[in-house]
Design a protein around this nucleic acid. Sequence first.
DNA 1: TCAATTCCGATGGTAGGTCT
DNA 2: AGACCTACCATCGGAATTGA
Length: 554
Amino acid sequence: MNPPGSPQFQLPSFRDGFVGGGMQQRPNGSGYAPDIQYDFPAHSMDTHQRTHAPHVPHNFGHAQPNASGSSFPAAEPTCIPLPDDENDDFPSPHLLLGRMARPASKVAGVRRSEPKGKGKQKAIDLPVPSGSGSQKRKLSTPTPQCADVKKPRGRATGAANYVSEDLDGLFDILEEHLPLGGKAWNSAADDYNQWAEENGRPAHTTKSLELKFKQLVKTSKPTGNAECPPHIQRAHEIEMLMSEKAGSRDLDDEDIVDASDAIIITSNEEDVKQVNVKVKVEKPRVPIARRPPADCIATQNTARNTSQDLLATITNVLDPDTRRARNEEHSVNALQTGQIFTLTSQLREAQRVADDLRNQLMEADRQRNASERRADRAELLEMMTERRGAQVVSRKDLSPGFAPRVGSRRHSKVHSQPRKCLYRQEITYAGGGKSVRWIGGSDDNQDEVQGFKDSPGTRRITYYDDDDSDNSVDPIRKPHRHRDVSPLTIQPPTPYNPPASGFDNSQSSGNLAVGGGFDAVVTPQLQPRVGISLTVSPHCHYADDLTTRARAED
DNA sequence: TCAATTCCGATGGTAGGTCT
DNA sequence: AGACCTACCATCGGAATTGA
């Protein structure tokens, strides 16, 4: 027998028996493993117990350890003789367990192709193949090939501190992205670096930006100064937006446990039975309780008994009143959600109808404009035809497929009494666009009667005509007596009916000269009097005569 | 010079997915 | 259901740099 403290008495710990650490000299000299709990006092051990490992049951294994090594009947598993030991003592547990203990033959993960380390160990031990595995680890952890080139620790050379400008730019980008995960942070960091490049600021890595932001968020209040720095305040605001985006918020203790709702668990069996009923607690939709930082937990719950909090939370969850109230709240939420959906769909439908009506209005406006343009062209052709005296040309020949308009506000009188047209007026609007109107009789001052005023920049050009200008070669007429709103007053030349023998019917370009067999150029003259100068260039032998007659002034 | 700041690596925890 | 794997995150400490 070896007294405690002797080398023979020293036994390995249970862990050492499996790990293979063997027997080691303990610094305390006792030889007991420090991580073993003994449930009997040392003074109560008899010789038999003190001889053998106190943490091994006396009937542990196949044999009852015996110093003498005497055998027992084979029927007793405890009487199986032990192999010879060099110490002639109870064999070490690690020797016994080496034969008895076998690892489980069926364990999870045996189907995996190759053994891998867990978590970071895998990334450190094994090279990460490209395109698979952890991208994050692949970036941050060097592979064995490049493990020799150890990245220098500490701050990188040339890394500049954050200044207010950098923080403002970072806050702007974070406020736009509201990153919640790593990918979002990468995107935000890309934008920030792009912004930094444009503004001549140093770029930072994603982790640096994230660390800086979270460092600002968790900045504690300085004692003695109640003013929160603006950048920290803005960081808090952005962090709040992130929480809202994630559909979570911090919960105070009052939100978690309401003392008035807590129930008391007694030893009554009926109460216990009620409590033990399985309750499927529905997951709350919003808000989700978000775990506060560890330091917040430590500071807020320091004085609170954790078990009591847990018990209070459980009892609160299982409270029938609380459950009923929760169900009612869920019902109300569901009803409100349904109403919101209904209103949203109605709003969307109304917007769609409004868009359709707007499109129809625009289409009708376009059609109206096109019709007016066609009507103007038709009227112009009609007037030109009539003034040529070509009565043989019918209207439908001039405008095939276009029916004459009847009842138009602006042109009804023109159509009904085309010969009453006294002059033609072209209106060029300041905002673009142009309109042509034929005015005669009492219709010429229609705008004044209706109170219409020309907008600034609007220009009116009026071509005057007289009823007695039937096919007259003289193109010059006096300005109409009714009004002359434009400094340029031009009367179109009366079409010239060429003789049957070969005059060409060319027309000059522009609105200053129209004619058959000659070109007419009208030049306005404002000094000394308002008038025009008309130059006619005939294409025939009448040129001299026509030029002489046409040159006139009023 | 030194406090503040930044970066990096290490460590541990958590949650979700996969596999047995 | 449980073990394992993986990604992600928080935290800490050391080292280097920055700027007052």
